Simulated scan of single mutants.
Amino acid sequence: MRILILAMLAIATVAAIGSAQAQTYDPDYPVCLHVYGRVSYYDCRYTSLPQCAGSASGRAAQCMVNPYFAPARPHRRHRHD
């Protein structure tokens, strides 16, 4: 009986935890807003630090440079002479 109760408790604990969400950085924007709270997350949709700072003002958040930002490269044409 004790094993059955412990097994049910273990299953209930695993079911209550839920799944973890993967955090991704959007490589299209150079600045991310890191919002702190019960659930912390990154919002990478800012083009400058001052723009991000406006959104972070008055919140438990801070702006950071996106470590995965990939600036667009100009497309090179091949010249045929």
Score class of each variant (00 low, 15 high):
residue 59 R to Q: 15
residue 17 I to F: 14
residue 11 I to H: 06
residue 67 P to I: 09
residue 10 A to V: 13
residue 58 G to C: 10
residue 63 C to Y: 00
residue 59 R to W: 09
residue 56 A to K: 06
residue 16 A to R: 12
residue 74 P to Y: 06
residue 78 H to S: 13
residue 23 Q to M: 12
residue 44 C to Q: 06
residue 74 P to C: 06
residue 11 I to W: 12
residue 51 Q to F: 00
residue 65 V to H: 03
residue 22 A to T: 11
residue 20 A to D: 08
residue 74 P to K: 13
residue 76 R to D: 08
residue 36 Y to E: 09
residue 22 A to M: 05
residue 13 T to C: 06
residue 21 Q to W: 06
residue 20 A to R: 12
residue 28 D to V: 01
residue 13 T to D: 09
residue 40 S to I: 04
residue 73 R to G: 08
residue 22 A to C: 06
residue 31 V to G: 01
residue 79 R to S: 05
residue 32 C to E: 02
residue 70 A to E: 15
residue 15 A to Y: 09
residue 49 L to H: 03
residue 54 G to H: 10
residue 31 V to T: 08
residue 27 P to W: 03
residue 23 Q to R: 09
residue 37 G to M: 08
residue 10 A to H: 09
residue 60 A to K: 10
residue 16 A to M: 12
residue 53 A to D: 14
residue 41 Y to L: 11
residue 59 R to M: 12
residue 9 L to K: 04
residue 34 H to Y: 12
residue 76 R to L: 13
residue 44 C to W: 05
residue 74 P to R: 10
residue 33 L to V: 08
residue 11 I to Q: 04
residue 13 T to F: 10
residue 5 I to N: 09
residue 50 P to A: 07
residue 42 Y to T: 10
residue 34 H to N: 03
residue 60 A to Q: 15
residue 4 L to S: 13
residue 6 L to P: 03
residue 76 R to W: 07
residue 52 C to L: 03
residue 52 C to D: 00
residue 23 Q to D: 10
residue 48 S to G: 01
residue 4 L to E: 11
residue 69 F to S: 00
residue 80 H to R: 06
residue 60 A to V: 04
residue 59 R to S: 11
residue 71 P to M: 03
residue 32 C to G: 01
residue 20 A to H: 07
residue 31 V to W: 02
residue 13 T to W: 08
residue 11 I to E: 04
residue 17 I to K: 06
residue 46 Y to P: 00
residue 24 T to V: 15
residue 9 L to N: 05
residue 36 Y to Q: 11
residue 80 H to C: 04
residue 18 G to H: 05
residue 31 V to Y: 00
residue 49 L to P: 00
residue 59 R to K: 15
residue 79 R to N: 02
residue 17 I to Y: 10
residue 57 S to F: 07
residue 17 I to M: 08
residue 25 Y to G: 01
residue 48 S to K: 04
residue 18 G to W: 05
residue 74 P to S: 11
residue 59 R to F: 13
residue 79 R to W: 06
residue 16 A to K: 05
residue 51 Q to C: 01
residue 10 A to D: 02
residue 26 D to V: 02
residue 8 M to R: 03
residue 58 G to K: 08
residue 14 V to T: 04
residue 18 G to T: 01
residue 20 A to I: 07
residue 48 S to A: 04
residue 35 V to E: 10
residue 26 D to P: 07
residue 37 G to S: 14
residue 56 A to C: 11
residue 6 L to H: 04
residue 43 D to C: 04
residue 6 L to Q: 11
residue 26 D to R: 03
residue 53 A to G: 01
residue 77 R to P: 01
residue 67 P to T: 10
residue 65 V to L: 02
residue 74 P to T: 15
residue 37 G to R: 05
residue 68 Y to W: 13
residue 69 F to K: 00
residue 57 S to I: 01
residue 4 L to C: 14
residue 29 Y to L: 00
residue 79 R to T: 13
residue 33 L to I: 06
